[in-house]
Amino acid sequence: MIRAIDEPSGAAENVPPLGRAIVITSGKGGVGKTTTVANVGTALAARGARVVLVDADVGLRNLDIVLGLESRVKFHVLDVLEEKASLDEALVRDKRNETLYLLAAAQTREKEDVDTAQMKALIETLRARFDYVLIDCPAGIEMGFKNAIVGAQHAIIVCTPEVSAVRDADRVVGLLPNDWRPELIVNRLRPQLVRKGKMLSVDDVNGILRLPLLGVIADEPNVIVASNRGEPLALDPTSETGSAYRAIAAKIAGEDVAAPVVREPSGGLFAKFGTLFGGRG
């Protein structure tokens, strides 16, 4: 279980406790890391925690889009590391949550431009100011991955129920420091396909990976709608997926949360009623 603050406050009396830096990673691209970071971060901030989301995907900036903050980004991680901008200038405050901030990735630079030691120092600085530092890791296991995990103490593995995603997740777990105990989010699950035997189940996936299960997110159309709008689903009180993200946030904050259950969207009439009354196209 992740706790908000796990470090002793140090020898000096007046050193504030450091927040927790968590890297969200997967190995494979396109499994929903960025969406997960945006939603889990939003849900954590909605609980009152001070949260900063760091986009470590240098060269392929995306987290700002998912959060709907693209027009507010003026400076990025590399500007801060190269002292072209102060941290305060580069941190973008979220539209909806006062305690949620974004540190965007550089769009026109390369992952090799990031100095690993400087990145580690930056995350440490952020930990002093925020309860949670969520790091959006780029796909792959090269330099970008190394820079994304260097300042973190914990990892969340995002994996879809696909052979390729599980294989990559397994590889990434092997590359994380030995004393970490990464947790798993199974993303884009389709319960009806699992029932028909046409998709790997959560048990199939985790039978291989054997990680503590942090949450399960269904593959639902509203995730795409939310992404189109730049409004994380975690804020939608009517969305079951939003509620799954809020449960993940609660679990990260140290609450006892029941094991995740993904309900199969009921077919036929019932589903249509659901769309009529609660759903948003």
Binding site: V163, K196, G197, K198, M199, D204, I208
Partner: peptide, 22 residues
């Protein structure tokens, strides 16, 4: 065989092979 079972079996084999190589 449902494709989910095929996926599970392929995954088992590929990881077996990966882990041996590692």
């Amino acid at each position: 065989q449902p494709s989910g079972a095929t996926a599970k079996e392929r995954l088992r084999l590929v990881l077996l092979s990966d882990h041996l190589a590692l």
